[in-house]
């Protein structure tokens, strides 16, 4: 066990190794570890944010769907109401139209009846005059009694 210069040699070698490690080994590795740590932290934060956003989006989507459903229901209700109205309206229109047609028909019929009656009256008057002419023959002058017969025919 001799104490000798080896101590100094070791001391120098030790210093050089520590210096080298401090200068060239530790900092790059340490930086890399730090960078990775930060990256992982950022990744985790981003994932967290993403999840949050997804949750918000889901909520928003739910809200939108709910609104859409509501709107659809409103539209359907309005359409139903409208169709009911239209049916009612057309019913009313049809009824009115029908009434009008009926009235026109009535008027036509009345006219026809009047016309027929007029014709009948004329024919009857002619027949009556003819009959009377035959019955009365000569005693009755057609010209003198013509006015009388015409009056009679009018009254029929």
């Amino acid at each position: 066990m001799n104490i000798n210069l080896t101590i100094i040699g070791q001391l120098l070698a030790f210093s050089v190794f520590v210096w080298f490690t401090m200068r060239f080994v530790w900092p790059p590795l340490s930086d890399a570890l730090e960078t990775r740590r930060r990256k992982i932290a950022e990744g985790l934060a981003a994932a967290e944010r993403g999840q949050n956003e997804q949750r918000l989006a889901e909520e928003r989507a739910k809200e939108v769907i709910k609104q859409a459903k509501q709107q659809a229901a409103e539209i359907i209700a309005a359409a139903q109401k409208r169709s009911n109205d239209m049916v009612e309206e057309s019913k009313t229109t049809a009824r009115e139209e029908g009434d009008r047609i009926k009235e026109a028909a009535h008027a036509d019929i009345e006219q026809e009846v009047n016309r027929a009656r007029e014709q009948l009256r004329k024919q009857l008057a002619k027949l009556v005059v003819q009959g009377a002419e035959q019955i009365l023959a000569k005693e009755i002058d057609a010209k003198t009694h013509g006015d009388l017969l015409k009056n009679l025919a009018k009254r029929l």
Binding site: T6, A13, F20, T21, F24, V25, L29, T35, R36, K39
Partner: peptide, 25 residues
């Protein structure tokens, strides 16, 4: 003592330096 210790010390710094030079995050 000097040769073995310096040799092993160089082995240490060079192998660790190799990791440090090609370090990736």
């Amino acid at each position: 003592s000097m040769l073995w210790s310096i040799g092993l010390g160089i082995l240490f710094i060079l192998s660790f330096r190799a990791a440090a030079r090609h370090v990736t995050a």
